[in-house]
Structures are given as C-alpha cells and as structure tokens.
Design a protein around this nucleic acid. Structure first.
Lengths: 275, 275
DNA sequence: GTGTGTTATTAATAAAATGTTAATAAGTGT
DNA sequence: ACACTTATTAACATTTTATTAATAACACAC
C-alpha cells in the first residue's frame, strides 16, 4: 500500500468505487388531524389523526400504498431531499420536519440495497392547502395496541388498509420494542414499521414538548386542542388536568367561537414566549 | 419505457446502477463512567463521564481522533455493522446500543459521498474489560454550555482535546437546536456534532428512563448512582429528592460497602420487575 | 320564551409528589 | 474519645396533580 505524505495527495489518488454502493432514500411520515363526519346534526365533528399515503404507479410494489419518498441526490443533504420530496408530493413547505430513524435491512428493497432515512412532518390541514393529487390520499389512523402487538387500520373513506405488527421488548431499561410485520397486504416496503415507530415517537413528544401546535390552526379552542391530544394518545383526558398542563403554553384571545349548540368557547393561540 | 406485467419481470431487468452510489458508515459513541484520581487521601474518587475515541492511522484525517466506526457491508444490516465495529474496536458485545441520527451532509467526508448512521453504546467499564489498544483511549468529558454555545474539553490524562459548538434554536415547539462546529482542531469528520447531540440525547433519556443502569455495575451504592446522574446532568442533586425518585427502580441487598472512612453504605441493584 | 341538552369553564377539595432543612448513624483516622 | 466524612431518614413546607361538582351560556325543540 502506497504511503502518502499529505491528505491532498491521498485524496487525489482515492478510488471511491472500492466501497460497496448503497442507494439512499428518504421517506416522510406526514401527520395531520382531520375532522370526521358529523355523527348527528348536533354533535361537533369528531377528530381523527391521519397520515398521507401515495399510491405507487411503478414496480416494485406497483399499486400498493406507501409513504411519500424518493431517492436522495448525490449532492443533496438528506434533510434537503426530504424537503424537496415534501414539496413535490404535497406542494407544502416550511413545516415541522424531524428525522426519525434510518432503516437498513439488506432485504428491505427487492431491487438493490436501499437505505431509507425516515422523517416525520406535521401540518395543519386547515392552514395549508395540500395538493392531494389522484395518487395521494389522507388516511385516518386507528390503533389497537397492547404489550405484544399493534393492529392498525387506515381509512380514507373509500378504502381500508389493515396491518398487524408484533412487538417484542428489546431493551428493558428504556422500554424499547422491536417491531416486526405480522400481516400486511396493502403497504409497500417496510412502511408499516415506519408508521408505527413514527406514531410512537409522536406520542412520546406530545407528552414533553409543544409539538402539537404544529398540527393546530392559529386560533383554536381548548376543547379542540384536547381532542387532538386525546385522538393521538388514544385516551380521554380530564378537563381540569388538561387545562392546568396547557395553560402556560397558550394565551386567550379576544375571539370567541359560537354556533356549537352550547356555551361558546374562547379562542386561544400558542404562546411563543413563555416565562 | 418498457411496460412490465409482473414484479418478477421488472426486477429481472432492473439496473441498480441508475441511481447515485453512496457509501454508508456507522459511528459509535461509547459512553461510560470512570473514577478520577483521588483528590486527597480521604475523599472518595470523583466520577467522570467519558467517551471512547480512536486515533486514525490513515488518511483522511490521519492522526486525528475520531469515534470508532467503519463501513457497513453490502449484505449487513446497519445495526449489525455497529455491533461488529464495537466488537472489533473494543472486544465488547451484548451491551446497550441505540441508533441516534444519520448524518448526510454532502461534504462531510472529503473522499466521496459518505452517509453515517451514529449509534450510542453504554457500558460499565468495571463489568466488561475493554480492549483499549494503543490507538484507543477513554476521554473524560467536560462541558460548558449555555443557550448559544457548547465548549467541550476531552481529557485522557495525557492529551486535551477542545472544540466549540454554536447552538441555534431550530424549532421552538420541541426545543431542537442546530449545531455547528465553531472551533475544532483534533477531531475528524463531523464527530464533534455527533458527540454533542449524543450527549444531549443521553441527558434527556436519563430523566425519563432507566438508561443509567447500563453504565452501572451489578451492585452499587446510592451515592455512586447519584454521582453518575450528577456528572452526566452537570448539576448537584439533593439527596432526599434523588432517593425518592430512584427508590422504585432499585432494591437493597444484604451486602454493605465499608472502608470509605465514613458510615458504610448498603449496596443496591437494579430492580428488573417493577410493580 | 321556557326548558333541555351540550360543551365551556372554574371552584373547591383531597391526595400525591417534590423541595428543603436538619437530625441521627456508623464507619475511619488522629 | 473525638473529629471528619458520607449514609440515611425524619419532618415539615410547598407545589403539583387528581377528582368531583358547580356554574355558564349558547342552540334547538316545543
């Protein structure tokens, strides 16, 4: 092996093909909250927690649903690629984007060795008009979870997607689970895993950050905010407890919301500068 | 473009070279806690929080220190690669390993486009004999941090490594910062960024998980455990408060530790099964 | 218009968790 | 025997959280 005196000399002779080539993609888990159909003329809309999926029109996994994603370009940072893909698929930008996890199982793509770095994006569907083409659709998420498995149902009003995940405790000190796909008919790649671990991350962050406000409109009632927490966490919260926790994060505005068939509620907004 | 009828047909013709080739590496941030020198004949050893670095013996960054790492093989999962690298560099296995973040700046490696997925590993130096070769060394970590920057000093008893990081608030709802290297003489690649964001993750997990026990021996005193928390969090904790928080996680054993020049203390161990 | 159903909002109280100070314990070394 | 050190816990004040229940105010039915 040749001895080099300087880094410049070494780099001039360097052969980049000596290491195995990987392809790199970025997949984005776009979360939002949507209003369901009114259950009767009186009840307020029930909220749902939803994700955006696109239908593949080429092989592999032709006609299956998958997360918006694409190949990272050779001169592009991974996060830049995620932003570009988000813009291409939904025409939205400048929204919450966070790297989640990098999936690198050698068999996760039948074509070749593809690494995928997943990102989570949060949007308020009311604030930003998403360009949902005929190949993209919002699916409401319903989870049934216990210590050993997660059953997921996705519903876009037209089509139901179901998959089942097996959970095994991987590491007890931090309660981390290994997820494996038990049943999956309709989703491409390992995207069921990306979805469940992304939801798990979101649930966690909901409890100790202000992340929820990325999914809210500028003005909202505390009832609406509480519904968003409830639908993501999958459980009911008691009003006074919820208000106590949230009260330092929001400020009451002059505006009121009437028309709900009940006492009107004050509209709040996220408080940017907390004491 | 040719129309394919089946996935098999498509895959048979697939040309994997049509997408840009990336190289993939895995870098491991190995944390442990070490005993410092005795300050006087009476005081107990002061504990330090430490990381393992290796000295590069080839270009690029020849003679600089870096995190243990290496290229992922084409048929190997990323986490498998991390385990292999850990075994090669330190001769340890079956320890706490968690994926942290994937770094993909196009210029992070001068040779070519290299993606690096970082992992954090935790070990108890007393429990496992680490094979520290002449090119590997434990460095005690000292941090000086405020809202805008982090000054880091690493000390292996022989050599001091200093670097400075600029922090800018990237996203206010979840308090995420963007880190940039301000000054760095001695570390290779973007490893200063990997180190500070890894420490930040560890601090966070310390507060809401039992992760600390991965760095502790089987039997330990509550004073030792408290010192580990203090040295990682960088602040003093009050004894009764600490004991209240920790008491559900540990169980007292019959064993006692004497010889410290003061009242002996009970030895505890991590309680696997909590109510 | 009066009553009923609905959600909004907060008061009031009980229970639990946390913060703080200080007292007592039990070794080692002088 | 005494001083020094860390271990351990008691006791109390303070804050936070949980729970129940009361009151508010609009829309609709009649």
């Amino acid at each position: 092996m040749k001895e080099y005196k300087t880094e410049e000399e070494f780099l001039r002779d360097y052969d980049p093909t000596q290491f195995d080539p990987f392809s790199l993609t970025s997949d984005i888990l776009i979360f939002s909250v949507s209003d369901g159909l009114q259950e009767n003329y009186r009840k307020l809309n029930k909220k749902y927690f939803s994700i955006l999926l696109v239908k593949r029109d080429t092989y592999p996994f032709k006609d299956k649903w998958c997360l918006p994603g694409g190949f990272v370009r050779i001169n592009e940072d991974i996060e830049e690629a995620a932003e570009r893909i988000l813009k291409d698929e939904t025409n939205i930008k400048d929204i919450y984007l966070e790297q989640l996890y990098t999936y690198g199982n050698p068999n996760r793509d039948p074509r070749m060795r593809v690494i995928s770095t997943s990102y989570m994006a949060l949007i308020d569907k009311n604030r930003l008009k998403v360009d949902v083409t005929k190949n993209a659709s919002w699916f409401n998420v319903m989870l049934l979870e216990d210590e050993k498995r997660i059953d997921v149902t996705l519903d876009n009003g037209n089509e139901l997607i179901k998959f089942k995940i097996k959970k095994t405790l991987k590491e007890k000190t931090t309660d981390r689970y290994k997820y494996e796909i038990l049943e999956n008919e309709s989703l491409a790649f390992d995207h069921p895993l990306v979805i469940v671990s992304g939801i798990s991350r979101l649930k966690n962050k909901l409890e100790y950050t202000d992340i929820v406000f990325n999914m809210m409109p500028t003005y909202f009632t505390l009832g609406e905010l509480q519904q968003v927490y409830e639908v993501i966490l999958g459980k009911k919260l008691l009003d006074p407890a919820f208000r106590r926790i949230i009260k330092d994060k929001v400020e009451k505005t002059e505006k009121m919301q009437t028309g709900g068939g009940h006492r009107p509620s004050a509209l709040f907004r996220y408080k940017m500068f907390k004491k």
